[in-house]
Design a protein around this nucleic acid. Structure first.
Length: 408
RNA sequence: GGAGGGGUUCCCGAGUGGCCAAAGGGGGCAGACUGUAAAUCUGUUGUCUACGACUUCGAAGGUUCGAAUCCUUCUCCCUCCA
């Protein structure tokens, strides 16, 4: 049987490891307790977190025990790694609310029943630390000189780095030590941007406990241009269906660039690797089939089978190939709303297709709006019942954004 | 604490009295080409009751016929010195 390490390697997760051979051996013969941290900076996890959660799931399936560490304490500091600016400060209430939502979302992907996994918040120990004691016990083991050479601080050396943020590494390292002592956690994993922070913890455990511990990082999802993936023009791709609907979520992955299809299939689905390779090898227009599979599988993992099917159905209806309109993004209106005509731009604004009337005008003038697939060039257009077909009016914005108006 | 330099539209960054709703780039949106891809080209990118009006250049006052530009106070940031 393949070890968890082999699986992660094969699927393309592994970026760096502190002790490759030892970790490989350890994961092959022992049940390992490992942890990944999530700072509750927003009220939902994002597609970026999804990658690490998948790694966690693979590990759990291979028999290891995950600890999902909610960073209720560390979030108050803010990780400067890879950030060009300091983060906004969050209030205690926000942090708590965010942490609650993280818990729910993680619970969907990781099995926390029967002590198969642990979820814990580092606020439990970080918030009661005594400053002087902490400096004497932990701070003494860190060299400022070495910290400053860390890659993750480089960009901040020009823009400025506060002492607050500079301490982030110490706190994360302390977390690892704490989890090591509490649960015998010997492995920390995370995105590759966490490398320095993870190393800090490994070294701290070696110095304080004279014991080995390990770190492993994952490749981050980036576009072929090297930008972070999981972001759209509207912001991040969220795992919360209220922030990013399953349909939008599906569409995001359906529109992934060709070069990333195989990588994403490996990282973000549970499909067997030979299937991943087969799909990834498809060429030209054929690769769209692979993208359909990718979008469906990922949506299924996050939102469940039913929502994935709905998203797929809606996509078929909109982009050709039949299917019913039932699951297309839509708004319900009364017949009376259109009896005297309703301004098209106003309607588009109400459905969220456009943020302002000016935007609507531009869009229409540039030929970016279609009503039931007929281009509309008149920005003063008033929609009446005559514009509906079978009580439905499909508004298309650009090539990919649809909204259905239903009369009820 | 002292000296100096700054805060401009989503971001970076020009602009030192009217020609400024503000150059240029990035990003976004739309059009063309396509495969719901990438790349490329074109247009566009404050708001509105739209050939005009209104609100924007850290904040509040002031000078002026007229201010992003000048003055005053405040505030935040950066650099050098201590």
């Amino acid at each position: 049987m393949k070890s968890a390490y082999d699986i992660l390697l094969e699927r393309g997760f592994i970026a760096q490891a502190t002790h490759e051979d030892e970790i490989k051996e350890l994961l092959a013969k022992e049940k390992v307790t490992f942890y990944i941290g999530f700072d509750p900076t927003a009220d939902s996890l994002t597609a970026g977190h999804f990658l690490t959660i998948m790694a966690m799931a693979h590990m759990q399936r291979a028999g290891h025990k995950p600890i999902a560490l909610i960073g209720g304490g560390t979030v108050k500091i803010g990780d400067p790694s890879g950030k060009t600016d300091m983060r906004k400060m969050l209030t205690d209430e926000q942090i708590e609310a965010n942490a609650e939502r993280f818990k729910k979302q993680l619970g969907r992907l990781i099995d926390f029943s029967d002590d198969k996994a642990i979820m814990i918040n580092n606020a439990d120990w970080l918030l009661k630390l005594n400053y002087v004691d902490f400096l004497r016990e932990i701070g003494v083991h860190f060299s400022v000189n070495r910290m400053l050479t860390a890659d993750c601080y480089k960009s901040r050396m020009e823009k400025g780095l506060t002492f607050l943020e500079f301490n982030y590494m110490l706190l994360q390292s302390y977390d690892f030590l704490e989890l090591y002592k509490r649960y015998g956690c010997t492995l920390q994993m995370g995105g590759n941007d966490q490398w320095s922070n993870i190393l800090g913890g490994v070294e701290l455990i070696r110095r304080k406990e004279s014991q080995p511990s390990f770190g492993l990082t994952f490749n981050l999802l980036t576009t072929s241009e090297g930008k972070k993936m999981g972001k759209t023009e509207q912001g991040a791709v969220w795992l919360d269906p209220e922030k990013t609907t399953p349909y939008e979520f599906y569409q995001y992955w359906r529109n992934i660039e060709d070069a990333k299809v195989e990588e994403c299939l490996g990282l973000l689905t549970f499909l067997p690797m030979d299937e991943v390779k087969r799909l990834g090898a498809l060429q030209d227009a054929e690769i769209n089939k692979a993208k359909e599979v990718l979008a469906f599988e990922i949506t299924k993992i996050i939102h469940g089978d039913e929502e994935a099917k709905k998203a797929e159905e809606a996509t078929k209806a909109l982009f050709g190939g039949g299917g019913s309109n039932a699951n297309v993004p839509h708004s319900d209106y009364n017949i009376s709303d259109f009896e005297n005509g309703k301004d098209l731009i106003e309607l588009m604004q109400e459905t969220g297709l456009i943020p302002s009337r000016s935007e609507g005008r531009r869009l229409i003038q540039q030929g970016g709006v279609r009503l039931n697939d007929v281009q509309e060039k008149d920005f003063g257009k008033s929609i009446t019942l005559a514009d509906f077909t079978d009580n439905e009016l499909l508004i298309k914005k650009g090539k990919k954004v649809y909204h259905l108006i239903k009369l009820v």
